[in-house]
């Protein structure tokens, strides 16, 4: 930025001022979530719109953790998201590797199919999947959700893994293959260690995707024993007597794994989203 010191000062203040607005807008809803979750019940409704809580208490968190249902939902979500993350990353790593390293007949069509599945409205598969999964015993089962979430994550995760593999020179596995390794061994011993950050980022993306999914979780698993956290929270919020405090505390808890992931993959965010531009 050029100009006299005064013009520059104005320009910079404007720059920071507008950015500050965006920062506040981005953080405020989350701040409010945390604030309410920490406000004890006796002042929750009387001082509901104070910007700062008068007193702070962890009582809502105690309520949530003492509530066996929420623990169950949490456990279900961790299982579903964890297995989904591992399964989809493994499958996507394999197919992403194929796209990155081989030119093969049908490649164009396979990529096309993956893109199309990303464009189609998910709602159209809701009813058929319900009808297919029912007889297979995959409704009201964590396994059913894992299968669905893995399948839905694969196209995006494949493009992501492909972009990570593309960043690793082909010569490395060629050297390993000349050194006496099979391609698979070269993939495991040479390429995989170099892609670890990418694998971690992909797992993170898949984990958060599964962690936040609600449509299929609502439709397929109506039994409380197999409900995931989002479903549990949503059903809790529609009960006759709503307890906002514990609900928000539960919301904050649901945020934790996501935020941890977010700060871990900061570096890969731009790359992830450039691949995400393909996802649409």
């Amino acid at each position: 930025m050029r100009g006299s010191p005064r013009v520059r000062l104005v320009k910079w203040s404007l720059h920071y001022g507008v950015l500050l607005l965006f920062v506040v807008a981005a953080l405020f809803p989350l701040y409010w979530l945390v604030k309410i979750s920490l406000t004890p019940n006796d002042s929750l409704y009387t001082h509901s719109i104070d910007l700062w809580p008068a007193t702070i208490s962890l009582e809502h968190y105690a309520t949530v953790i003492g509530n066996s249902d929420f623990l169950l939902f949490f456990r279900n979500s961790v299982i579903v998201s964890g297995v989904t993350a591992i399964a989809s990353t493994l499958l996507a790593a394999a197919s992403g590797y194929a796209f990155s390293r081989f030119v093969f007949r049908g490649r164009y069509w396979i990529v096309g199919v993956m893109l199309v599945t990303q464009m189609f409205p998910l709602v159209i598969v809701i009813t058929p999947i319900f009808s297919i999964f029912g007889p297979l015993g995959l409704t009201n089962s964590l396994m059913g959700l894992i299968i669905i979430y893995t399948a839905f994550n694969i196209p995006f995760a494949t493009f992501l893994m492909q972009s990570f593999f593309d960043g690793i020179p082909k010569e490395l596995e060629e050297a390993a293959m000349i050194d006496g390794a099979t391609r698979f061994k070269a993939l495991l011993q040479i390429i995989a260690p170099l892609t670890l950050p990418g694998i971690a980022a992909t797992m993170g993306f898949c984990f958060t995707g599964a962690w936040g999914e609600i449509l299929f979780a609502l439709l397929l698993n109506s039994a409380a024993s197999t409900s995931t956290f989002p479903v549990g929270l949503l059903l809790y919020s529609t009960r006759a007597t709503i307890e906002f405090g514990p609900m928000m505390a539960a919301g904050v808890l649901a945020l934790l794994p996501v935020c941890i992931f977010f700060f871990l993959i900061q570096r890969y965010l731009v790359q992830g989203l450039t691949a995400g531009a393909v996802k649409g």
Binding site: L91, A94, I110
Partner: peptide, 21 residues
């Protein structure tokens, strides 16, 4: 080889999205 690597992912996607569509 490329088919071997991409088949599991592709089959799962086909079974849970293409067929239901």
């Amino acid at each position: 080889e490329p088919y071997l690597y991409s088949a599991p992912a592709l089959l799962l996607v086909a079974a849970t999205t293409l067929v239901p569509i």
